[in-house]
Design a binder for these strands. Structure first.
Lengths: 384, 384
DNA sequence: CACTAATAGTTCACAACCTGAACGAAATAC
DNA sequence: GTATTTCGTTCAGGTTGTGAACTATTAGTG
């Protein structure tokens, strides 16, 4: 599976193990770290020293100690929140965003520019995103943070550092290069629905380690998280919830099939059924208790529930999370989803996203932090 | 994620790496192993020595060499097929089976006893399975093979070494203990559909590393293989293809839902639609071109295709494999499955199981071999 | 206030393992 | 017969985790 295990890999693994133990605990002593990881005190000593000199971990002054107990008081260690930071960028249909989080997951910078990017030349949009990124880099420097890497969320599929296709933007095979300084982990590009799911995992409230995150927009996509990891499938095309068939006799879909969820319960379908032409108007009418609007949303909810019951039967998650437009419509949508989900599948909890539109950028920034925690050795060697 | 990496783990990892390289190559020299694994000649030397003394690897006399080239001829090493063996057992509704494979994947022993186990007391059935196992153990000894472990395939869910529920047998919470000698890996129990998928992966013809294997019987289950590993989900309940909804307005299912695939395309449903009362008779009528039977099978195939298209959209596999009864009915079923699959999803190849009813036992036996290859260190230390 | 007990963290000799270079082995080429 | 080439082993050297000894620091005890 993996490559050869040499001494360097051994060290790298153990550094990651210790850093993760520290991250999970928040604040912890060296001895506690030793018992948590299974390594000895001596090893922890050296590993922690390395992490401290790299600026990833710091000794906190606040020593709550084991008050009332004898013995030398323990030095508490924790992630160094002033050390590394991850830059998340988002290139979406109607906005650009940059967001930076520190090692502890705190948002240190946020800038969103709303503008319709359809029809704009890719180069121009990427240049604007580059300027946003540079402003974020400047802000990082001002705060004394070391940028560990960057990740761009895009509404489509990515392959390496190119956007292979982004249908809603009308883009295909657009290489992404941004004026960023050299960082330990470089630049990554990832689908926006996947990153939103990860954002929910890392920053959302009460989200388990196995769930399906539904990004309801004009299209319907899902990010599948299995045991805290993104599930991508063999060709990185997993999670196409929008084309799960909910009615074999239903209307034809642009994908060539019939009765796809997206065709019947995507935003366009809901708006049409409700007889309105904007998302804001739909929400207003729902809030006002307008029956046609409520009915349209409930109908969509039932179908979403059917699709999610299939997903549940196949993937066996702990929970299903409604995100995107579905999160905004949750007060009227969720009950119908819950009903039809409960009728067809056992088990999964139904949750509503707590992050709103920021989910994907936060997931992007978080993915950088995640890499630092999972592979601190690369960060150390990049520091020199 | 993993535990601490000590010297022993480093060794264990590298032993596995080398053994896998040898297994993948079939026959290979030490130098080739070094380049394949990324370890140095010196390391390979010691690692191979350990594997040879444990009896997992042997030096083959046949030295094809790089004929016509200068230099010392290379000694070829390969898996020692007379060394370790894995015992697969199957406890199913209408038969019991024992099957043994050696390290190279060759079947060294096979014994199937056909008998309806419904209504029999679990103790009695387990005793009979125990006798089958003992006969296999004797056969292993006679062939000079060292039993590395055993795995039992059951038609239901397993938890540790107990069958937590097996609806088609009417069993629940039955602990499984078999009179087996002490082995390196002990006894494992796993769902039959999952093992059938693994059997297909390891022993089937031309099966990719990402696929969904459909076990069509009275119930319909699926084994999901992702990157060569079984996908179990958060509660080991993944792959419930039988309860994917293919018609929200369909008839109620025993699970409480409506329009589940199993209710509409399970063996019982097909037999009812075809107006016959046995699987054999159904196959005869299909072979004879009887329109009602062919229609019933084709209808079921279309629904299976719909469910599989949903699975494909969610899981993004390379292929979909028809197994169990569906494999037997493939000549008449597969075209309908292929049509509806192609209409609703892009990509997956449609394959038919080549192993028949042996898939699960072979998967069970193979899972033991797999453990030997993945973790030879445990085998070494068990050998003493 | 000294002394003991207890706990945290560091240091250092030691062992396990991989590496790299040197070496021995076995064949072909001239 | 000698040089060349390739394979595999051996051994010194380096990196890393371990375990015991040691230092550091505090609370209790008389």
């Amino acid at each position: 599976m993996a490559g050869p295990v040499q001494h360097a890999q051994m060290r790298a693994s153990n550094l990651a193990l210790v850093l993760r133990a520290i991250a999970d605990a928040g604040t912890i002593t060296r001895v506690q770290t030793a018992t948590a990881t299974g390594l000895t005190k001596s090893s922890i000593s050296g590993l922690v020293t390395d992490l401290v000199t790299a600026g990833l971990v710091e000794e906190t002054e606040a020593v709550p100690g084991r008050a009332g107990d004898r013995g030398r008081p323990s030095a508490m260690i924790a992630l160094h929140r002033g050390g590394a930071a991850g830059l998340g960028l988002e290139l979406n249909v109607d906005y650009l965003a940059a967001l930076m989080v520190d090692l502890g997951g705190t948002v240190r910078y946020r800038h969103v520019v709303t503008r319709d990017n359809r029809g704009r030349p890719p180069v121009e949009v990427l240049e604007e995103l580059g300027r946003l990124a540079q402003e974020a880099v400047t802000a990082a420097a001002e705060q004394g943070l070391t940028l560990a890497g960057a990740c761009v969320a895009v509404p489509g599929a990515a392959d390496g550092t190119t956007i292979s296709r982004a249908p809603n933007l009308g883009w295909a095979d657009v290489p992404v290069e941004l004026p960023l300084p050299r960082t330990a982990y470089g630049l990554a590009i990832e689908n926006e629905a996947n990153l939103a799911a990860l954002g929910e995992l890392w920053f959302g409230a009460q989200v388990p380690r196995d769930f399906v995150h539904v990004s309801g927009e004009i299209g319907i996509g899902a990010g599948i998280v299995v045991d805290g990891e993104l599930f991508r499938g063999a060709h990185a095309r997993a999670g196409e919830l929008g084309h799960v068939v909910v009615d074999p006799a239903g209307p034809p879909c642009s994908c060539g099939g019939r009765g796809c969820l997206e065709r019947l319960a995507g935003l366009d379908a809901i708006l049409a059924a409700a007889g309105v032409d904007s998302r804001g108007e739909l929400e207003r009418r729902c809030a006002a208790g307008e029956p046609t609007a409520l009915g349209a949303v409930a109908d969509a909810g039932r179908l979403v529930g059917v699709a999610l019951s299939s997903a549940t039967n196949l993937l066996d998650p702990d929970a299903v999370v409604l995100g995107g437009v579905f999160a905004a419509l949750a007060p009227w949508l969720a009950p119908a989803v819950a009903d039809s989900l409960a009728a067809h599948a056992v088990g999964p909890e139904l949750l509503v996203s707590s992050l709103g539109a920021d989910a994907a950028v936060r997931g992007a920034a978080g993915s950088v932090i995640r890499r630092v925690i999972d592979d601190p050795a690369t960060f150390l060697s990049a520091q020199g």
